[in-house]
Amino acid sequence: MVRVLINVPKQVKRGEPFDVKLLISHPMESGQRHDDMGQPIPRQIINSFVCTYNGADVLRADLFPAIAANPFLSFAVVAQETGKLTMTFTDDNGTVQTETADIVVA
C-alpha cells in the first residue's frame, strides 16, 4: 500500500465538469538506472491507472517510465448524481490498489 492524496470538490453541480487531483507516493523506478555496483535497478512503476464513477469509466491511462516519481495525476470528471469515484492503479509487481472518494451532487 502506498500513500495517496486525493483532492476532489466537497460538492459539485450536476453535469458540470470538476477536477480531480491525485498524488501517489511511489518511486516510479524507471529501470534505466544503475546502483553503485553498476547493477541495473529493476523497473518498478505504476503502469496502469483506471478511474470510474459509479462503475462507468472516467479514464484509463497507461503509464510508462517517463512518468516522474511520486506521480501527480489530474483530470476532469462529470457527474449526474451523487456517487463514488473509484481510482485503481497497478504496479509492476502486480499490486493493485484502489482508492475511493465520495462525490456529492448538489
Partner: peptide, 10 residues
Amino acid sequence: LRVTFGPQAG
C-alpha cells in the same frame, strides 16, 4: 503515456 476516456470524463 496513453490515455483513453470514458462516458464520465468531464
